[in-house]
Design a protein around this nucleic acid. Sequence first.
DNA 1: TATTGTTATACTCTATAACTATA
DNA 2: TATAGTTATAGAGTATAACAATA
Lengths: 167, 167
Amino acid sequence: MAMTLKPTAKEKPSGAVSDAGAGSDLDLGPLPGLVGYMLRRAQLAIFNDFIKTCAAEDIRPILYAILTVIDRNPGVRQGEVGAALAIKRSNFVSLLNELESRGLATRTRHATDGRSYALDLTAEGKALIRRLNTLVAGHERRLLDAFGADGRDCLIDLLGRIPALYP
Amino acid sequence: MAMTLKPTAKEKPSGAVSDAGAGSDLDLGPLPGLVGYMLRRAQLAIFNDFIKTCAAEDIRPILYAILTVIDRNPGVRQGEVGAALAIKRSNFVSLLNELESRGLATRTRHATDGRSYALDLTAEGKALIRRLNTLVAGHERRLLDAFGADGRDCLIDLLGRIPALYP
DNA sequence: TATTGTTATACTCTATAACTATA
DNA sequence: TATAGTTATAGAGTATAACAATA
């Protein structure tokens, strides 16, 4: 639970606008000190790189997450995947339709509950997720190279504690 | 540049799904180890809290950021604000229209460049940003209480280094 | 010719309500 | 009645292309 750390040297002696302004020399006031603001910028940058990384397979981050969960939990019910990824049922439908029409995943009626669908990857879907995992590992390695394993683990750890703060 | 730290104790001995699944017992595979995935979940949680925090003033995160930059840089040109916040010019127009029509900001023709607008907050806008800063400080304090100043600074520092990784 | 702001448009993600079919 | 999935719809945020006015 505890954590000991030394932040990187503060290179801006006064204002502390840091790099957040993307080269701009404007005064951003409290923004560079707000977790939410820095989170938005970081997420934009990482998602753009993720999209570029998986562009050859035409897969967006949300589709990669869905494919991953189905791959790891064959026969999982549709609603479970959505809940695990915080995607609303109504929004999940068209995403799954997309995967299904591309021949990557299948809906099968649940054995004991006629309301549910059991989701599985097709052979093509399984082959795709393997290729994607290789691409994504390369994408992730850039962060690992920049931050080191300790820095990356620390970031993951801190980020993972945030959702629990807002019940 | 260097950083020393001890991640929090790993409470899940085996799988390490952590809290990312929001209580689900599904196997999320590599997702909880991906910075981008954890970033998305953290940002969703923080933005939702921010929106709730500023709901009484009917201000979304992006409007707060714009108001802040205009407040800190009176007379700033429209394009500069957009560039500082990574908002495309074409998308910035309607956002500024919203602030202007609500009587919070003004467009004035730039003194020396007839193409530009100089942006300023109205008295009402200035009063609003002061109230917002109080609300946002409370929102941010929750993170500070949870992580401590060291943890928060570490998080901000790591997040701030991410955009520079993708030129 | 290049830049600033604007309009138009499209796509993705998200949110809500109402519907169906099963339980 | 409650739940799983679906449809319809609306709102944000983001992206590109084309245009007018100005430099």
